[in-house]
Amino acid sequence: MTTLAILTAAGSGTRLGRDMPKALVEVHGLPMVLHAARRLAASGVVDSLVVTAPVGLATVMSDVVTRDPQVTVPVRVVDGGATRQESVAAGLALAGPGDDVVLVHDAARPFASPALVRRVVAAVRGGHGAVVPGVPVVDTIKSVSVAVDSRPAGVFGDDAAVEPVTSTPDRSVLRAVQTPQGFDRSLLERAHAAGASRAADAHATDDAGLVEALGETVVVVPGEDAALKITTERDLVLATFYADGSGDRP
């Protein structure tokens, strides 16, 4: 049996202040999507790769990934959807008959190491149907009410809204979830089928959320600092510390 990795690369670079898709933004001279694809291939546990591209850019994305000699697994590129959930579904539709494990990874986490990929796949093959990497939360987290304070705007400067605190979760049981996330293929297909039937505004922010909505168990394995998500310019600067491959070591 084989493992398929779906690499989501259809997001925009708006919050990075770029006029190109985020996955094509370069770090240390290479696009993020290529860094991520190389590490998936280097894991030794991924048999094939599907990349979801922004609509109209499948050829460009294919040229970037398929021509790289370090991406040593078969690669297919497909147009992504309007949401992450739709993009993953498009990639999942290309799974072959032998693909019993599916990884879902974000190109915006380009330096998730091969060791992390192997850890997630090993947990799925060990009998866990849904596996996510996660790191302990180090900040104190507050739940707040979304109601806006009734006092005039500008009282606190910069038109800041006041959000009353409703609770302080115990951070010892909180994890910041990363990718790649790994799944038994049949479970992920069932989760996406159920998710697609829900309201358009109920799209999940990750695939584990779709599995949770089925009432199925999701387990967490240790994540890593190198798997940080690049969303802002600050993240891009931090990510350069992992671009030399130091995060790839077991």
Rank of each mutant, 00 (worst) to 15 (best):
G215K: 07
E212D: 08
R118P: 03
M61K: 02
V104T: 07
A213T: 02
G195L: 09
S12N: 13
F241H: 08
L40H: 01
A23F: 12
G134K: 12
P133H: 06
A227V: 08
T14V: 10
A115D: 05
G29D: 04
G17E: 02
G129H: 10
V65E: 00
H128Q: 14
M1D: 06
P164A: 12
V50E: 03
D19Y: 11
A227L: 02
A36Y: 08
G29A: 05
V165K: 07
S62G: 14
H192G: 07
S186W: 09
T66H: 11
K229E: 11
G98E: 15
A23R: 12
V75A: 04
Q181M: 15
R171E: 10
A37P: 04
E224N: 06
T14K: 15
T52R: 02
V162F: 15
G215S: 10
P250C: 06
H192L: 08
T59P: 00
A191G: 07
A112R: 01
Q85T: 15
T2A: 07
P169T: 13
V173T: 06
L30A: 14
L16D: 01
D225W: 06
S43T: 00
S143H: 13
R118Y: 05
V73P: 08
L4C: 02
H105T: 07
V75S: 03
G182I: 01
P133G: 04
L228M: 14
A226N: 02
S43W: 04
D184H: 12
A176W: 00
A90F: 11
T59E: 15
L7D: 09
S143P: 00
V120H: 07
S145Y: 09
R119Y: 12
I141A: 01
V75W: 10
R175A: 11
A53F: 01
E216C: 02
R171C: 00
L116W: 12
R109E: 11
V33H: 07
D201H: 13
L30Q: 13
G56N: 09
A160Y: 09
A147K: 12
T3A: 01
T231F: 13
T240I: 03
G127D: 09
V46C: 07
G247Q: 03
V138L: 13
P21W: 11
T168G: 10
V221Q: 09
D184Y: 09
A239R: 05
S246R: 15
T232P: 12
V104G: 05
P136T: 07
L34A: 07
G29N: 04
T3Y: 03
D159M: 04
D100M: 05
L174W: 04
P169F: 14
S43N: 01
G17M: 10
D201T: 05
L34T: 02
R171Q: 10
A37C: 07
A226Q: 08
S62P: 03
L174K: 00
R171D: 03
